[in-house]
Simulated scan of single mutants.
Amino acid sequence: MTPLALTPPASEPVSLAEAKLFLRLDTADEDELLGTLITASRLMIEAAAGRMLIDQTWRIVLDRWPESGEIRLPLSPVSTIVAARVFDALGTPHPVEAGRLVLDARCDPPAVRIAGEAPEIGRARSAIEIDVVAGYGPTAAAVPAPLRQAVLRLTTRWFEQRGDVVGRDAAALPAEIAALVAPYRRARL
């Protein structure tokens, strides 16, 4: 199973204005850098939490339907199945009928269940594509406050301590930021 990002979030969980207020910045001299740090921080927090923060569209690519009839998605939370298609032996895509795939967003990780017979596939690799919307919602207001705070704190850390700190944080989040993310991490057994 391969997840592919199709469309990034329309906005970030922390606005440039919020970050500038937090940092007590009055000028626009470093707005571009700060915007880049906000995006990088969001990506880092999403990776650490195993959760997408703002709604974004992803494509899940599978070689074949699972025997169990259930696909556990590698993304969370997932709100919608946008589209699904299967490919025949010639590589022609065929849409999967609405209702043939049922999203169970309540479980973690979210699952897609096949209702009835699985649509027939025709090629051995990348035969199934399922497009989903993953994220807490379309705006920052939908993102849990601790995760927004984690993005803000990491952005601030990287802005104030430029240099090697980003490389060190890539190995492990600082303890105070990891504590904000911890309740949202997906448990791994």
Rank of each mutant, 00 (worst) to 15 (best):
C107R: 15
A89G: 00
V61A: 01
G163A: 06
P110M: 02
A48C: 10
W65F: 04
R85A: 07
G122W: 04
G116Q: 05
P9W: 03
I45E: 03
L34M: 10
V14I: 12
I128R: 03
E117P: 00
A118E: 06
L152R: 01
A5V: 07
L21W: 08
E18P: 09
L25P: 00
P138R: 14
E18A: 08
E67Q: 14
G116S: 03
A150P: 12
L73G: 08
L189H: 13
V165S: 15
V14S: 05
A171H: 13
A28I: 04
L75S: 07
V133H: 02
A10H: 01
T80D: 12
F22V: 03
L154A: 11
A49T: 10
A105V: 03
E12D: 15
A187I: 14
T156H: 13
V132G: 05
T27P: 01
E46F: 09
A47K: 15
V86G: 01
E97P: 00
P183Q: 07
D26F: 12
V82W: 02
M44T: 15
A98D: 12
E120P: 00
A182H: 12
V166C: 08
E120F: 00
V112G: 04
A141N: 07
D31T: 10
P109D: 06
T36Q: 15
A182Y: 07
V181A: 05
E32K: 14
V143M: 08
M52L: 11
A127S: 09
P77W: 02
P77G: 05
E46K: 12
Q56H: 09
V181K: 04
I38D: 10
M1T: 13
Q149M: 12
D164Q: 14
I130R: 04
L75N: 02
A124K: 06
T92A: 12
P138A: 14
T27R: 15
G99K: 05
L101Y: 04
R64Q: 13
P144E: 07
P95H: 04
L25W: 05
L75D: 04
E160C: 10
E120W: 02
G163M: 06
I54G: 07
E160V: 09
W158Q: 14
P74G: 09
D63I: 02
V181H: 03
L43R: 15
V102K: 12
W65Y: 09
R72F: 10
V82K: 10
G91T: 01
E176W: 04
A175G: 06
T27S: 15
G135F: 04
I60L: 13
L154F: 12
L37G: 09
D104W: 01
R162L: 09
V132W: 03
P146H: 05
L21T: 14
V61H: 00
Q56N: 00
R162C: 00
A142R: 10
R64A: 14
D104L: 02
R42L: 05
A170Q: 15
V14T: 05
R162F: 13
A10V: 08
P146T: 05
V14H: 06
M52K: 13
E117V: 09
I81R: 02
G135K: 01
H94P: 00
L33G: 11
P8H: 08
I114C: 15
A5N: 08
L16N: 07
G122L: 06
P144H: 07
D104K: 01
M44E: 15
Q56R: 13
G35L: 04
R64I: 02
I81A: 02
A89E: 11
G35H: 08
